Computed example of a mutant assay.
Amino acid sequence: MTCFKPNMSNFDPNAILRGAQLTLVGANRALQNPGLFTTNHYRQAAIAVCAGLAIRIILNVPIYGVKALIWLSSIFVDLDHETWDDTIVNGLDFISKQVLQVPFFLMMVMSSITPTLDNVFMESLRWVDQTYVQKHKSDDPSQLRSMYYPTLKMYSTHGAVEKREQRSFLDGVIVFAAKYGRRAAVSLGIYILTFIPKVGPFVLPAASFYTFNKAVGPVPAGIIFASGLLLPKHYMVTFLQTYFSSRSLMSQLLRPYFDRIRFTKQQKKIWFIDRSGVLFGFSVAFAIMVKVPLLGVLIYGIAEASTAYLITKITEPPPPPGEDNGFIESEVRWKNKHLLLNLPLERLDEFNTKLTGADKATRQADRNASMPGRNFA
């Protein structure tokens, strides 16, 4: 049994920067795919926008009610020289958008109840493979990497996509709302604790240290803890919630991949930690942009399409079903991380292009050494 400890290098600035670069390259690649701009995708996007707007209005009813009460009170009380009304309204907006993450919740609901994003991922993966072959058409075909789309298409989704197809809108909302409700309650509880005299200033720094220590180790967590003691509270809330949003978003964006390549819970946890810096850099910009009213769902679609490109850089092409030979176990740890992080941006398409005989033998040896029976804890 191998003990896994968080490694600071997983979350270093270079890894985060490379993730951000993959965001730009992946989005550019995805937007060049004419297959994304189909009638079906446009129709699904329009439905999602309307549904998201309706849910947002419903969830914001309490805030609208408070604002209405303040407006009515202005008939009897002169609020022109008062600031408490602005403080209440701004506070409610902050809690809605940053503490409870209502706009982000809407995007997560839409991805949980429709199989459209799975289709977007697979279509984009087909386009990534096609573009890869086109860019390397003058190279020796025997030296090119294997394709992702044809093989992943052969894998069963174990009912995950079919379940989303059969799930009603209301059922989807209820299932995800239960998960979101627990997370929102914790966030709101921590935010309320920050108002306790003397103890309050240490609540957010302590929560951030606990979170980051588990994910990336004590050094980054210590830096964030110290920053939390100096920065205003709303900056720390925004930072922490952006981090959590990016993690949740990345998990959702990778669902089409993990629906097919079935890792255990522990394997999946280590898979994410080993790639945490790149995944954060990739997802943080999308996590911010999906909160934009109306346009958020369209940006979500671009993010899913871009994830297809990301997969080809942080994983190896899967073998056909039934021929894994320890593939999943060997994929838990990211063995060629340093190759990707040190590669110049203009040469990203060359990454994992050619494998020498020694490289192939080494990777096969790694797979054989990682056959089922060797657990991470």
Rank of each mutant, 00 (worst) to 15 (best):
M1P: 04
T2S: 15
C3N: 14
P6H: 11
S9A: 15
I16Q: 10
I16K: 09
R18C: 09
R18V: 07
A20L: 12
Q21C: 01
V25D: 08
N28K: 14
N33L: 02
G35I: 09
T39Q: 15
N40I: 11
N40Y: 01
Y42H: 13
Q44I: 01
A45Y: 00
L53C: 01
L59T: 00
L59K: 02
V61G: 00
L69V: 14
W71S: 03
S73D: 07
I75S: 07
I75N: 00
L79H: 09
E82I: 04
T87P: 06
G91T: 10
F94Q: 09
I95F: 02
K97S: 14
Q98A: 00
V102I: 15
M110W: 10
M110D: 06
I113P: 03
T114M: 12
D118H: 00
N119M: 05
F121Y: 04
E123Q: 08
H136F: 03
S138W: 12
D140S: 13
D140G: 09
Y148Q: 06
Y148P: 04
Y148G: 02
L152V: 07
S156W: 11
A160W: 09
S168V: 08
S168C: 07
D171A: 15
V173G: 04
I174H: 11
A177P: 07
A178P: 02
S187C: 13
G189P: 05
Y191M: 01
Y191C: 09
I196S: 02
P197A: 10
V199E: 00
G200R: 12
G200D: 08
P205K: 09
A207V: 05
S208I: 12
A215H: 02
I223H: 07
A226Q: 03
H234L: 15
L240E: 04
L249V: 00
R255T: 10
R255D: 06
R255K: 14
R255M: 14
R260E: 04
F263P: 11
Q266V: 14
K269A: 12
R275S: 07
R275C: 06
S283M: 09
V290S: 11
V292Y: 01
I302T: 06
A305N: 05
A308C: 07
I311L: 03
E316D: 13
P317G: 08
P317H: 12
P320Q: 12
G326Q: 03
F327K: 06
I328R: 06
E331M: 03
K335D: 00
H338A: 10
L340F: 08
L340N: 01
L341A: 13
N342R: 13
L345C: 11
N352G: 14
T353Y: 06
G357H: 11
A358Y: 12
D359M: 12
D359L: 12
K360C: 01
A365L: 12
R367D: 06
